[in-house]
Design a protein around this nucleic acid. Sequence first.
DNA 1: GTCTATATGTTGATAGAC
DNA 2: GTCTATCAACATATAGAC
Lengths: 230, 230
Amino acid sequence: MGIKGMRTVPETGIRKRRILDAAELLFAEHGYDGVTLRKIAADADVDVALTNYHFGSKDGLFRAVFERRAVVLNQARLDALDACLKAAAPYAPTLEDVIEAYLRPLGDIQSSADDGWRHYLSLVAWVNSSTEWGNELMTAYFNPYVQRFIEALRSALPEADEKALHWGYQFMSGALTLTFADTRRMDRLSDGAASSGDAVTGYAHMIPFIAAGFERICGPKSGEDKPLDQ
Amino acid sequence: MGIKGMRTVPETGIRKRRILDAAELLFAEHGYDGVTLRKIAADADVDVALTNYHFGSKDGLFRAVFERRAVVLNQARLDALDACLKAAAPYAPTLEDVIEAYLRPLGDIQSSADDGWRHYLSLVAWVNSSTEWGNELMTAYFNPYVQRFIEALRSALPEADEKALHWGYQFMSGALTLTFADTRRMDRLSDGAASSGDAVTGYAHMIPFIAAGFERICGPKSGEDKPLDQ
DNA sequence: GTCTATATGTTGATAGAC
DNA sequence: GTCTATCAACATATAGAC
C-alpha cells in the first residue's frame, strides 16, 4: 500500500472533524436555528451532503458537537474539585477555594489560545440559556458534576439554606454564561476601561465576587439576613 | 356614523397589537431565527401578509417588539433610581439601596401576573446574550440608563476601581439574564427545593448576593479581604 | 386594513454514480 | 467516503382584489 505515495494513515475523520469544528463556531455564534448546513459545509470546505452522511441530521450534528468536549471538560473540573477537597482534608475546604476550583478551569480555557475550546464554552453558554436545548443537554451532561460542586459548597457553608444555595448557583451560572457569551458590550459601556476579551481580569474579579455573594446569603449568619419583608 | 351598529372607535391596531404580542412571546422563547412569520400570524390569528403590511419585514417586526416596552421600562427604573438618590440626599445612597432600585422593578414585573411584560423580560434576556442583536439593541435602548445606574454605584462605592465596577455590572447582568430566561433547570437540579418560577425568593436572594459581590471587589476595603460583618 | 394568490429563494434531506 | 443532482417543504415578501 505504501508504495505509490498514498497515506498509510487513513485520513478518515479529517473532514468529519472539520465539520464539527465549523459547526461548533457557527452554532456558538448564531444558535441552532441561525445556522444552515450549507454554511457549515462551506466553512468546513466540504460538500453539504457529508453533513448528513456523517451525522444523520442537523439535530444529530448539534448533539455531536455538544457531546464531543463535554466529557473531557467535566473530567478536568472534577479533578480540580477533588484536588481542592483533598488539599483541605480532613477539614472542609474554604468557600473561595471551592469557587476557584469551579471557575479556574474555565478561566484557563477562555484565556488560552485554543479557539476550539473557546468556541465550545460559547456554545455551552448558548445552550445554557436556551429553553429548547438547555434543559435536556445541560441536565444530561453537566448536572452530575454540578451536583458534586454544590455538595462541596454545602460543606464549605454548613449552615446554608438549601434554597439560597441553589439560587446562588443560579447567579453564578448566569454570570459565567454571560462572560462566555462575550458579546463585547462591556467594552463600549465602559468606554474601553474594561474589555470582555480580558478573561484573566474577568475571572480574577469573578471568584471573589461570587464567593462574597454566597457568604452573604448562605453564610453562618444567614439566619438574620432576611433583607426583605416576606 | 353610529347608526348601523358600526364601531365608532376604530378597531385599528387590534390586529397589529395581537401580532406584537404573539411575536413577543415567540421571539422570547425561540429567538429570532427560531420563529417564522407564519407561526406568529397563526398564533395572533391573523393573515400572514399582515405582518409585512404593518411592520415591513421580519426584522422590522422584531425591532418593533423590542422597542415597544423599552421606553416605559427605562422610565420606571429611572424613577426608582431617582427616588433612591433623593431619599439619601444629601448623602450618597447605600450600595444595597442602589442595587435594590435597579432590581426591584424587574422583580415586580417578573412576579406579576402580566404575561406580556414577563415575556418581554425574557426577550430582553435573549437579546442581551445574543451576539447579533445584543450589541446594537441593548446599547441603543438601555445603555443610557445603565450608565446612570453605574454612576449611582460609583457614588455608593467611592473608592471603586473602574474595571472592577464594570465587571461587577457584567456579573449582575448575567445573573439577571439567566433568571429572566427561566429555563426551569434549577427546579430539577435542586430536586424541587428551589423553583425558578419563584421570582420573589429569587430577587430576595439576588439583591444581597450582588451587593456583597460589589462590596468585595469595589469596596473601600477592597485591597484587603474582609469577608463578612464589615 | 385585510385577504388571496403567487413570486422567488432557501431549507434539510436523500438517491445514486463514482 | 465523497460528490452530483434533485426533492418536497417552507421561508420572506409582494401584487392586486375587495
